[in-house]
Amino acid sequence: MTKVLNPRDWSSHPLYVDGGYRSTALRGPTRPLVALKPALSALASPVFGHDRLGATDADLTINGRKDADPLGERIIVKGRVLDENGRPVPNTLIEIWQANSAGRYIHKVDQHAAPLDPNFFGGGRCLTDSEGRYRFLTIKPGAYPWGNHFNAWRPNHIHFSLFGAHFATRLVTQMYFPGDPLLLLDPIYQGVPEKARERMVARFSIEDTQESYALGYVFDIILRGTSEAIWETH
């Protein structure tokens, strides 16, 4: 008996070509994916050592600071990375990037007419601990307009990139904020089947809110898990 990775749950993920999100029309693959036997695709994910990370990589209120604090609402974003069976995924790299409090990315291509914040960079990364926990300190990102349709605005969100233990547990997603009215109108969020959408919405937590300092949000991330299976023999 060997553990094999559970399949991607297609009922939880968006389609490659989505009617509402225009850019998918020419970019999403249209032919059926070719299934691979687990024995042929089993492969561990890259592993990153603690020594590779900078001391302020997980504190976005500091890592872009020049001479003052960044503007905006300070928030703590924390949670656990678990697999589908609820087992923690330890020592896995989480990378995040986000707009500043005005809804502007530092990316050179972002032309939105909102101010850059000289004290905010917007990139962060950390490793989960032995219990799969992670924690970032940052600024709540602003909403920003985009060209998908008339008066299109992205809800407040933080981009997340994760690896997990296996090559195929790779996940890139976005974390949203509870109660955001733009979620109802956002084709990227709405592109996910309805039953799974709220898994991308963080939970406000007064317990994780730091008195007189920062609001707390909890965002748990569930990666594909493993099940017992018998290797096929040839």
């Binding site: 559970n6 991607r8 749950d9 939880s12 993920h13 968006p14 678990l82 697999d83 589908e84 069976n85 609820g86 981009h159 996940l171 890139v172 997603t173 976005q174 990227i188 969020y189 996910v192 089947p193 039953k195 799974a196 959408r197 898994r199 991308m200 991330i221 569930i222 990666l223 594909r224 898990g225 099940s227």
Partner: peptide, 9 residues
């Protein structure tokens, strides 16, 4: 599996 996979974006 008892927890649903976090969707991709």
């Amino acid at each position: 599996p008892s927890f649903g996979q976090t969707p991709s974006q």
